[in-house]
């Protein structure tokens, strides 16, 4: 059994020495913060046009995180590439010849990328929150308000768990193109469509991104949306269950299949 610290160190070197890491994580931060800032500014300017119900449930924290729609896609790309480039490059054979204990290899890779995603996710969520609130002017929330800190930390955790989910899917599919094609389409289109259609809305609530984003809400039923059947941590827990299932599936494939 290779020393766990040695394998972790090796995986850290792998992550930090490819330029895609820098680009995807920077894109996640910039997209989330910039789109959030833009929407915050627009909301502030058009606040009076909102309906009475929307004004009553106005959730400035959630508004500043609107950019997550796009920013999460960059985290998806990061998570997918960390795993799938092992396969697309053929590096997986070299890696597994060096670390034949597949569990140690897989756990180390997931842990390193998850910790990095957590740091970037939290940095993103705090930057996004403060920039967004500054632009919301009179309608902004304070970090000391009830549940706001939970929502901001939750946004960072959301980005982390979406990365983990993506790593699990990539480990199952073993292909960059397949994984990105599936996850991009899912998070960008399919999930929102399912959530928008009344017939599928109740089911869509249990999809990883829909459930997970509950953790970013401060006001229940924010912006006159439907009440959710779970609380903020309940929703986040559902998302974690998805990620865990994907990661376990990914491990099963790695363990069983020929490299």
């Amino acid at each position: 059994m290779a020393a766990p610290s040695a394998v972790l160190k090796s995986e850290w070197t792998k992550v930090r020495t490819v330029s895609s890491t820098m680009w995807t994580l920077a894109a996640a931060l910039v997209l989330t913060a910039a789109v959030g800032a833009l929407l915050s500014g627009v909301m502030n300017a058009t606040y009076d046009d909102l309906s009475r119900a929307e004004q009553l449930t106005f959730d400035p924290t959630l508004v500043s995180f609107f950019g997550m729609m796009l920013g999460q896609l960059a985290m998806v790309v990061f998570g997918v590439l960390v795993v799938s480039t092992e396969y697309s490059s053929g590096m997986i054979r070299t890696s597994l010849a060096a670390v034949p204990q597949r569990a140690a290899f897989y756990v180390s890779k997931v842990v390193v990328a998850t910790l990095l995603a957590l740091v970037v996710g939290l940095l993103t969520s705090f930057v996004t929150f403060f920039v967004g609130q500054a632009l919301l002017g009179d309608h902004s929330a304070s970090i000391t308000d009830d549940n706001v800190l939970r929502a901001v930390i939750g946004a960072g955790l959301y980005m982390t768990v979406i990365t983990m989910f993506s790593m699990g899917v990539a480990a199952m599919l073993r292909s960059t193109v397949l994984s990105l094609g599936l996850l991009m389409a899912f998070f960008f289109l399919i999930s929102s469509i399912l959530a928008g259609v009344p017939a599928t809305r109740d089911v869509a609530r249990y999809l990883p991104d829909q459930a997970g984003s509950a953790v970013m809400q401060v006001v229940p039923g924010a912006l006159d949306s439907d009440k959710l059947p779970y609380g903020p941590w309940g929703g986040f827990g559902i998302m974690c269950a998805w990620a865990a299932a994907a990661l376990i599936g990914g491990y099963a494939v790695l363990k069983k299949r020929d490299a």
Partner: peptide, 21 residues
Amino acid sequence: KNMHGGRSAYHNLLCLAQSNR
């Protein structure tokens, strides 16, 4: 071809070396 093309030759070998101390 069993190396990551986006990584330098040195770093490709370094990460493998580290895993085996």
